[in-house]
Amino acid sequence: MVTLAEVAQHAGVSASTVSYVLSGKRSISAGTRQRVERSIRELGYHPNAGARALASSRSNIIALMVPLRTDMYVPVMMEIAIAVATTARTHGYDVLLLTGEEGPDAVRRVTSSGLADGMILMDVELDDERLPLLRGGGATPPGATPAGATPAGAASPGAASPGAPDPAMVQPAVLIGLPADTTGLTCVDLDFRATGALCVEHLATLGHREVAVVGEAPAVYERHTGFAERTLDGLRGRARELGLRLLHRPCAGGYDSTAVTLSRILDERPGTTGFVVQNESAVEPLLALLRQRGQAVPEDVSVVAVCPEQVAVQGSVRLTSVAIPAQEMGRHAVEQLVAKLRGRVEDEVVLLAPELTVRASSGPASNSLP
């Protein structure tokens, strides 16, 4: 078994320098760090996790909270989780996956037990009950003032929320998702409000004036899940600005539920020519149901989806879509958390800009054709 001393000798540095590279406790020049990391790879050195935890009072583990619910699209959640795990390994961390719906109890359990050095939380609600346990958290050096979050990736110092827990006692954490109030929190997310606006703008430029939204399952909105609520805000706000009529209907997904939702939409708004779908399990059923009704895509109706890239390109029609940047979200979350664990004081909100890719499912509104 290769020892730390052998790595130090191979890299031509002291054993303490190797230790600092592994722990991140001190700043090491880029050249020295690269030389040590190269020696670690070449020699196949694997630090003893127990010894490192005892020496550093750290576990080198990140806890990832992924509540697996039947009303959520699990493949996206797992893609984010895989990105978190692979990125964490590049920084010397392993990942503890928590899939239960324990809420605050899971945060307390991880914090009190020392199971993990920090946490990444997914499936964030606007008024998430886990947030009071996280506000003001981070690797705050003694005497430093916690910082408040600011929108759109900007960071500026500020006081912690009144009544917030002692920062020294709070688990350093990053949210993948955006609550209503980001003060004292570090968050990473797709800008879902801009996503909704982008979908409406695309349909408006094609002449569509009646747009229907096939949304997530009703329970997602009942929980006030952040991504769904913010997308809806963006859709509604931009539709008002552009003078479009917008109808939103939740959908449990699957063929039967999508059939009921589509029938309801067309009964209420028979002039609908544009659909925005934010529900992966409703995408293919919707396309099939439109074909059954004799409505061609995109000649009669246009469909725009907010979904993973593979869903958009592998269906019966290649969908115009805004992709969910799952891997980028997971990577950013780990990098934000590692920065907090290495002493960064400021909290930050990172919003990833949406990109709409035009494919075969959107075209000029039939009532706007010459």
Score class of each variant (00 low, 15 high):
residue 150 T to M: 12
residue 47 P to C: 06
residue 161 S to V: 14
residue 282 A to Y: 01
residue 227 F to W: 13
residue 5 A to N: 14
residue 152 A to N: 14
residue 164 A to Y: 12
residue 322 V to Q: 13
residue 7 V to M: 06
residue 156 S to K: 12
residue 290 L to C: 11
residue 300 D to V: 01
residue 257 S to V: 06
residue 141 P to S: 10
residue 59 S to H: 07
residue 3 T to G: 02
residue 210 E to R: 09
residue 328 E to F: 08
residue 336 Q to E: 15
residue 291 R to P: 09
residue 131 L to Q: 05
residue 308 P to G: 00
residue 133 L to P: 00
residue 284 E to C: 00
residue 74 V to K: 10
residue 1 M to W: 11
residue 130 R to N: 07
residue 43 L to S: 10
residue 150 T to K: 13
residue 12 G to H: 05
residue 312 A to V: 13
residue 147 A to W: 11
residue 160 A to D: 02
residue 171 Q to T: 13
residue 192 F to G: 10
residue 145 T to I: 10
residue 84 V to R: 07
residue 176 I to P: 12
residue 365 A to C: 13
residue 66 V to N: 04
residue 303 V to N: 04
residue 178 L to N: 09
residue 291 R to E: 15
residue 327 Q to K: 12
residue 152 A to Y: 08
residue 292 Q to M: 07
residue 306 V to Q: 07
residue 73 Y to H: 14
residue 119 M to I: 12
residue 57 S to G: 10
residue 303 V to P: 08
residue 56 S to G: 11
residue 209 R to T: 11
residue 192 F to S: 14
residue 52 R to F: 00
residue 272 T to L: 03
residue 152 A to C: 09
residue 335 E to S: 03
residue 362 S to R: 11
residue 276 V to I: 14
residue 235 L to F: 10
residue 94 D to C: 02
residue 197 A to K: 07
residue 282 A to R: 01
residue 256 D to C: 04
residue 345 V to T: 14
residue 65 M to R: 00
residue 81 A to D: 01
residue 27 S to G: 12
residue 177 G to S: 09
